[in-house]
Amino acid sequence: TELRLDINGREIKVDGADKETLKELLKLAEKNNDEKAIRIIRHLLER
């Protein structure tokens, strides 16, 4: 399955993203107070 998050109005594919990319996405999600995106990205970073 493909995991996509809508961050800042942009749909971004997050599964398969490297750790650096995920960290950047996490910063974006935190800036937007997007709890769902934050939770998902943190979960991916823990893998």
Rank of each mutant, 00 (worst) to 15 (best):
24 E>Y: 15
21 T>W: 06
16 G>C: 05
20 E>I: 06
20 E>C: 06
45 L>N: 00
27 K>M: 11
42 R>S: 06
33 N>S: 08
40 I>A: 05
36 K>F: 12
7 I>D: 03
9 G>N: 04
6 D>P: 03
30 E>A: 10
8 N>Q: 04
26 L>A: 02
42 R>Y: 07
10 R>F: 13
41 I>H: 00
20 E>K: 09
30 E>T: 10
20 E>D: 10
17 A>N: 13
6 D>A: 12
26 L>K: 02
41 I>D: 00
16 G>A: 15
30 E>C: 08
30 E>Y: 13
12 I>L: 05
18 D>M: 04
28 L>Q: 06
2 E>L: 10
9 G>Y: 03
41 I>M: 03
3 L>P: 09
37 A>V: 05
19 K>G: 06
10 R>Y: 13
32 N>F: 15
35 E>F: 13
12 I>Y: 15
24 E>T: 13
8 N>L: 06
8 N>S: 05
27 K>L: 11
19 K>L: 11
21 T>Y: 09
9 G>A: 01
8 N>F: 06
13 K>V: 14
4 R>G: 11
40 I>F: 13
43 H>T: 12
22 L>C: 01
10 R>N: 11
34 D>K: 01
46 E>N: 14
14 V>R: 01
41 I>G: 00
31 K>W: 13
47 R>W: 14
14 V>I: 08
19 K>F: 07
45 L>A: 01
1 T>C: 13
15 D>R: 05
47 R>H: 11
47 R>D: 10
36 K>T: 09
25 L>T: 02
6 D>G: 04
37 A>Q: 02
9 G>Q: 02
11 E>L: 11
6 D>I: 15
44 L>F: 14
5 L>V: 13
44 L>Y: 14
11 E>H: 07
43 H>N: 08
32 N>P: 01
32 N>D: 09
4 R>K: 11
26 L>R: 01
14 V>L: 07
6 D>S: 15
22 L>K: 00
39 R>G: 06
6 D>W: 15
23 K>I: 09
25 L>M: 06
23 K>A: 09
16 G>R: 12
6 D>K: 14
17 A>Y: 07
32 N>Y: 15
10 R>A: 12
18 D>S: 07
5 L>I: 13
4 R>H: 14
10 R>G: 08
10 R>E: 14
26 L>Q: 02
33 N>D: 06
9 G>R: 01
29 A>H: 01
33 N>T: 05
33 N>G: 11
1 T>P: 14
13 K>L: 14
29 A>K: 00
35 E>K: 08
37 A>S: 06
3 L>F: 05
30 E>R: 14
7 I>H: 03
3 L>Q: 11
19 K>M: 11
43 H>Y: 15
17 A>L: 11
34 D>P: 00
21 T>L: 09
21 T>R: 11
21 T>V: 07
22 L>F: 02
8 N>V: 03
19 K>C: 04
26 L>S: 01
5 L>K: 03
21 T>D: 03
5 L>E: 07
33 N>A: 08
23 K>H: 10
2 E>I: 11
18 D>H: 03
38 I>C: 03
25 L>V: 05
19 K>R: 12
5 L>F: 08
39 R>V: 09
22 L>I: 04
12 I>N: 02
12 I>G: 01
13 K>R: 11
44 L>P: 00
26 L>V: 02
